[in-house]
Amino acid sequence: MTRAQRKDFALLTEDLSPEQRIKLDQLLEQRSGSPYSALSWLRMPPGAPTPRAVLAHVERLNAIRDLALSPEDGKNLHQNRLLQLAREAGQTAVYQLKAYEQARRHGTLVALMIETAATLTDEIVDLNDRLIGSFFTKAKHKYERAFAEQGKAINDKVRLYARVGAALVDAREQGHDPFAAMKRSHPGILSLPA
Results as ranks from 00 to 15, higher is better:
residue 83 L to F: 05
residue 27 L to H: 01
residue 130 R to L: 13
residue 51 P to V: 13
residue 111 A to F: 02
residue 11 L to R: 12
residue 102 Q to D: 12
residue 151 G to I: 01
residue 67 L to Y: 01
residue 177 D to Y: 01
residue 40 S to H: 04
residue 174 Q to M: 03
residue 36 Y to G: 00
residue 134 S to F: 13
residue 97 L to H: 14
residue 116 T to D: 08
residue 8 D to Y: 02
residue 131 L to K: 08
residue 192 L to C: 00
residue 69 L to M: 03
residue 92 T to P: 04
residue 84 Q to P: 01
residue 39 L to S: 01
residue 167 A to Q: 05
residue 82 L to K: 02
residue 115 E to H: 07
residue 61 L to Q: 08
residue 13 T to I: 08
residue 95 Y to S: 14
residue 98 K to D: 07
residue 163 R to S: 14
residue 135 F to Q: 10
residue 180 A to R: 11
residue 143 Y to L: 09
residue 111 A to Q: 02
residue 89 A to Q: 14
residue 58 V to H: 08
residue 28 L to G: 01
residue 120 L to K: 00
residue 65 R to E: 10
residue 116 T to R: 05
residue 166 A to S: 14
residue 165 G to H: 09
residue 172 R to Q: 09
residue 126 D to K: 15
residue 131 L to N: 12
residue 90 G to T: 06
residue 131 L to Y: 07
residue 29 E to N: 05
residue 78 H to Q: 13
residue 153 A to E: 14
residue 74 G to F: 02
residue 102 Q to I: 08
residue 52 R to M: 09
residue 135 F to W: 15
residue 123 E to M: 07
residue 53 A to I: 07
residue 190 L to R: 10
residue 173 E to L: 12
residue 44 M to W: 04
residue 182 M to Y: 06
residue 27 L to N: 04
residue 173 E to T: 10
residue 186 H to E: 12
residue 157 K to L: 11
residue 177 D to L: 07
residue 118 A to V: 00
residue 64 I to E: 06
residue 3 R to K: 14
residue 38 A to S: 06
residue 162 A to C: 11
residue 21 R to V: 11
residue 3 R to M: 10
residue 18 P to D: 13
residue 17 S to K: 13
residue 166 A to V: 11
residue 8 D to Q: 07
residue 69 L to N: 00
residue 10 A to I: 08
residue 164 V to H: 09
residue 109 L to K: 08
residue 172 R to L: 12
residue 147 F to G: 03
residue 31 R to L: 07
residue 151 G to T: 09
residue 137 T to P: 00
residue 149 E to I: 03
residue 106 H to G: 07
residue 33 G to C: 01
residue 78 H to C: 12
residue 21 R to N: 06
residue 181 A to N: 08
residue 5 Q to V: 01
residue 194 A to H: 05
residue 87 R to L: 12
residue 88 E to W: 04
residue 110 V to Y: 09
residue 24 L to A: 09
residue 107 G to K: 15
